[in-house]
Structures are given as C-alpha cells and as structure tokens.
Simulated scan of single mutants.
Amino acid sequence: MIRPRFRTPRVGPALALALTAALGTVLALGLRQPAPPPDSAAAGGMPAPAPALAGATLDGGRFDLADARGQVVLVNVFASWCGPCRDELPLLVDADRRWSPQGLRLVGLNVRDGADAVRALLEQTGAQGLTVLPDPDGTRAVDWGVRGVPETFLVNRDGRIVDRQRGVVTGQWLEQRVAPLLAR
C-alpha cells in the first residue's frame, strides 16, 4: 500500500520570528489590565484613586496631578478632530474661570493629535490658557479607562476620582458635581 506523502511547509526563521512577535504583541495587549473604570463612586463604593498623570505640557511647562492635591481637578480627555470636544471646551474654560478661586483646576488630556492642531483648537475655542498634556499614542487615556472622547473625570481634593462623564459635559452636570466639592 502506498501512502500519500504530505509535506509540512517550512517556515523560515524570519517568518517564525514575525509570527512570534505578532502573537506576543496580541497577548501583551490583551492581558494588559487598564485601570479599572473609576465608576465605583457612582455605584456607591469607595472612590478610586486617580491614576498618575504627569508630564510636559503643550506650552512647555510641567504638570503633575499629585501636586494638585487639595484642589478639585477636572481632567478632560479631548481631541482636535472631535466635534463634541470642540463644543464643550468653552463651557469647561468658563467653569475653570468661575471656580478656580475656590480651588478648581482644569486639565486637558489630548489624545492622538498633533501640537499644531491642538493649538488651533484652543485658539478657536478661547481655551489658550488650558493646561494640556499631550497623549499622542493614547497610553495615558488607556490608564484612565477612557473609552472615547470627550470624557471628563472629576478628581476630589484627596486625589480620588469621584465622578466621570462619558460624552459632553453640560452646565447642569458641572453645577451638580463640581460645585458641591468646592463647597467642602
């Protein structure tokens, strides 16, 4: 009896290395645990500590959320290519101007954008003074559990995330969430 002979395809070292690297990348990304979504406060649980947020700002300064302890911080995740982000920036800047004497700090986390596009957006929306941390690859946003833009996090004076808004913030949201924290 003659048995058919099957040939196993040979995989060259370069292809084997590329496949191994691709599989390793997929596993690493799949196994990487982003920060748990800070919704525990909204669910009645203990507010989650805010993830680290520090680095060079768009204007060449430096920002570190840890240095903002004692202040209420709004972290707004935005992009110049996001229409709703463009719409909400003037409201956020007005809230910052209104409440900064009571201890509010507004910080923008700009994802997947270029510096020139962000500067143009800030100028168009009257937000030139906004502290902006660039996040060109989205890594910081992932650490914060961001699902899309815009998204805004409210960090209390103890550095804990007490609320988050997925999508555009409204004046009502700011009044209901921010004002009470500033009164404490």
Rank of each mutant, 00 (worst) to 15 (best):
P13D: 07
T125Y: 08
L31E: 11
P36S: 06
V118Q: 07
V118K: 02
L27V: 15
D59E: 15
R10T: 13
V77F: 08
A16R: 12
L65S: 04
A48Y: 05
Q71M: 05
A54T: 05
R105L: 12
V132Q: 12
T131S: 11
A68R: 03
L58G: 08
L121A: 12
L15W: 01
L65V: 05
L109E: 11
P9H: 02
N110M: 10
R32C: 03
F6N: 07
Q128M: 13
Q128P: 01
R62E: 10
A117S: 14
G60C: 15
R105S: 09
L53R: 02
Q128C: 03
G60V: 14
V11A: 09
G44A: 02
D116I: 11
G83I: 10
D59G: 13
A95D: 13
V11Y: 00
A48R: 12
D116H: 11
P38Q: 02
P84Q: 11
G70P: 01
A43T: 05
E88N: 07
M46I: 07
P90G: 03
G60Y: 13
R32S: 13
P101E: 05
G24F: 00
A22D: 01
P49A: 12
R105E: 11
G55T: 04
Q33W: 00
A41Y: 06
D39H: 05
R119K: 15
T8K: 09
R7L: 12
